[in-house]
Design a protein around this nucleic acid. Sequence first.
DNA 1: TCCACTGTACTATTAGTCTTAATACACTTA
DNA 2: TAAGTGTATTAAGACTAATAGTACAGTGGA
Lengths: 123, 123
Amino acid sequence: MIVIDYKDKRPIYEQIIEKYENLIIRGVLEGGSKLPSVRSLAIDLSINPNTIQKAYTELERSGYIYSVKGKGNYVIDDEEIKKRKKEAVAEQSKNLVRLVKSLGITKEEFMENLNYVFEEVGL
Amino acid sequence: MIVIDYKDKRPIYEQIIEKYENLIIRGVLEGGSKLPSVRSLAIDLSINPNTIQKAYTELERSGYIYSVKGKGNYVIDDEEIKKRKKEAVAEQSKNLVRLVKSLGITKEEFMENLNYVFEEVGL
DNA sequence: TCCACTGTACTATTAGTCTTAATACACTTA
DNA sequence: TAAGTGTATTAAGACTAATAGTACAGTGGA
């Protein structure tokens, strides 16, 4: 499920965070499902458990998972995931619109172009 | 023009790169205009000239500026800036559409929402 | 030509982060 | 109880970011 890219200059724990954020927000991991344990994932990826723990701690802090001592780490529930999805779309939309406006592109121009993008990007 | 955020955990040179990319792509800096010299900007920001040089080197490598020995660093010309603008919008559009599709949001739903975003985001 | 400014290159040093390693402790469940 | 879980701590090595100092080469004006 998770693959580390050693050509990537970013730290390993950040890569893990990003991968899980994507899996969760895209619905690949359902709400409430269990993440691999700190130790087992460390063995899987041939890295140190501390690195996994750092990623999980951060994922909990930013509200993607929650942890239960002695049991494991779990994806937040579907209700919460929906919120995250909306937040993600809202944020990226706002950024893009800001850029478009600052470049002096009209809404109509942009919207038309976006239609093509929708065609181009396959499912 | 440039302000360093020391609360930001990213390296200083990356912040400088990002700031200039924005200034250039948003047209605040016109094509061909001269950037502050490595030394003068270093004094302005109270940081080391080497850090500025690292930022400028990277900005040249990624095609936002060009440098002339003994003269200074200059913003690429307007023709090139236009290309960059289009690239930036295209890339961010594609990313957003990918996200929207992966979340199962329909084009119509998204487009309607985007109308509101356009209203919200002032000029 | 001289001088001040410019970009560029290099080495050395300090500080901080990333990662690994090895323990240890508390909690859960079979 | 035993195995598996999360969590915390300390130490070490590798790497990067940033500073400091120096040097060299090109530009342009006095």
